[in-house]
Design a binder for these strands. Sequence first.
DNA 1: TTGAAAGCGCTAACAA
DNA 2: TTGTTAGCGCTTTCAA
Lengths: 344, 344
Amino acid sequence: MGRTARGSKSPTLEDVAREAGVSRATVSRVVNGVRNVDPGIQEAVRLAIERTGYAPNRAARSLVTHRTEAVALVLSGAGDTFATRVFADPFFGRVVNGVLGFLRPRGVHPLLLVAESATAREQVVDYLRQGSADGALVVSIQADDPLPAMLAAAHIPTALFARPPGAERVSHVDLDHAAGARLAAAHLLSRGRRRLATISAPHGLPAARERLAGFRAALAEAGIDALPAVEGSFTSDSGARAMAALLADHPDLDGVFAANDLMALGACQYLREHGKDVPGDVAVVGFDDSSAALTCRPPLTTVRQPVERMSARMAELLLEQLQGTRTEPASVVFAPELVVRDSA
Amino acid sequence: MGRTARGSKSPTLEDVAREAGVSRATVSRVVNGVRNVDPGIQEAVRLAIERTGYAPNRAARSLVTHRTEAVALVLSGAGDTFATRVFADPFFGRVVNGVLGFLRPRGVHPLLLVAESATAREQVVDYLRQGSADGALVVSIQADDPLPAMLAAAHIPTALFARPPGAERVSHVDLDHAAGARLAAAHLLSRGRRRLATISAPHGLPAARERLAGFRAALAEAGIDALPAVEGSFTSDSGARAMAALLADHPDLDGVFAANDLMALGACQYLREHGKDVPGDVAVVGFDDSSAALTCRPPLTTVRQPVERMSARMAELLLEQLQGTRTEPASVVFAPELVVRDSA
DNA sequence: TTGAAAGCGCTAACAA
DNA sequence: TTGTTAGCGCTTTCAA
């Protein structure tokens, strides 16, 4: 039972060829824009395509070309509500926009896959091994993600948004997280803040460690060695709790760097609800420039990653592999930028 | 051990058949779980598959079955930053989760397509006409979306998340928006509020009109006929502006119903910044139960739609069509629920 | 510049 | 229960 109602099957190359009075091969050439086709015949074929309402069959084409003109966009992480959580942040929307911006003009389509469990990961690899897509764009939001290694083992062309876990040699884009933290530090210092603290991301994530190290290094260079730090879990609640803990131990704090905006928002709310003015008493800097940064009162000063450009580049790295233009994995690191608003 | 050497092509049914000493057909039967295969042979084939590292070729299979076991998940709306905006709301993440929850156990994969312009819509339809997916799940966030009609014209099985525009006869799921607005009204009334106003969504959207009408009707039943209303545009800014306008004309307001959480949040911020306590002076009810509802101070009382269940049902409606189980379009309407927090 | 013909890897009649 | 065989609709040599 096909989609085509009324029993009529959709037209094939053969049908178009008959209609145009030429061979299948010629129609194929016109459809695929191969030159060396008489302009007159070209026109006749185009007309026949119009009349028959022909659309090439992907499966048939794919069977001979071994290409699908589609790539998988894999969201890799952990947990039941993983997708909900990830989509709750504009981050992924920006990734989609960046990827789409690059792929669409090239006629390549993204296939959305979510790998949030061992089973799901197996399914993703199987799916790709079946040739459903030409390669994978993996947005990895998990410490020690096993997926990249699985894809490599299955010889599936891959590009990563994140630093590859372990010693995997795979093309990827990443942010210079340390530089981002340094921007935050420099900004706080330039505002005259000296009694600083930080709310870090889970240490399992390499990015979290880099942000913390970068912040520490920048302070050390300014002669500040003490840095109270509490680990949060990316949620606004955890940010508020961390802020409470920090304030309890260091009531005279005058600046806080949070490893993401949601935690910064939680910190701001806690501060305001406990009589501290932001940024008057305590300046707060976030990370990501997510929507939380804008809804926060006061709007957050934060570190932004060029997600669209990074995603587009990731897509480009993959297509280069697919075309054989690139044989060695590339590592492209992007510079963050500081978005100054009112919280610091 | 598999001969997954670099240059070697991936193994085919033929290879497995040779390895197991049976015919292609038998291997196909085992792979597809068809019964009537000798258990011994079944085992032998399984072993051969293991040894060769065989994975069926989707294109070849699809070519004969006319099925891809994939469906398109189409995000239909308008504007350059459309994807970014949509993804910024947890709504779409919940849709993905709901759809995935239904499709995954059935081995069906979602293909992500974004139709934010006329060109993009053409591409979506073309892609589907090429048989890249078996049908389309359309999340339409636009007044008078032309996509459903285009899909219908191309005979592409479709299920919608939204009421179909025009007189389109297409399976869909939708929320009882009027009932949601009634819940909000009843709650505000039960809190003793009588001087109510509303910040509505753009009137182009049927859902917006239904929410407004439902709210009006509930008030009328309670003997309240006056309802100051200002149209917003879903953003927090527009909510604040609308609140300012309402307050200017009706300084004694004691309750507001906003057609989404972001606008409710903007309203709350405006109220607090202008000396009004929420909910002490003015109670605020939102719609959607998005992340904004939780970051809002105070946390928003809001109307929630069962997005996961709705999305799963949408996916089910489509699969029913594909299996031929359902021949007539279905319209499934879900009931909203009130989430009571602190803003009202 | 065009056409004939050989597959791509698989499923599904149909036979055995 | 298993094997043989005929395509599915397309691209791509190879001849003409």
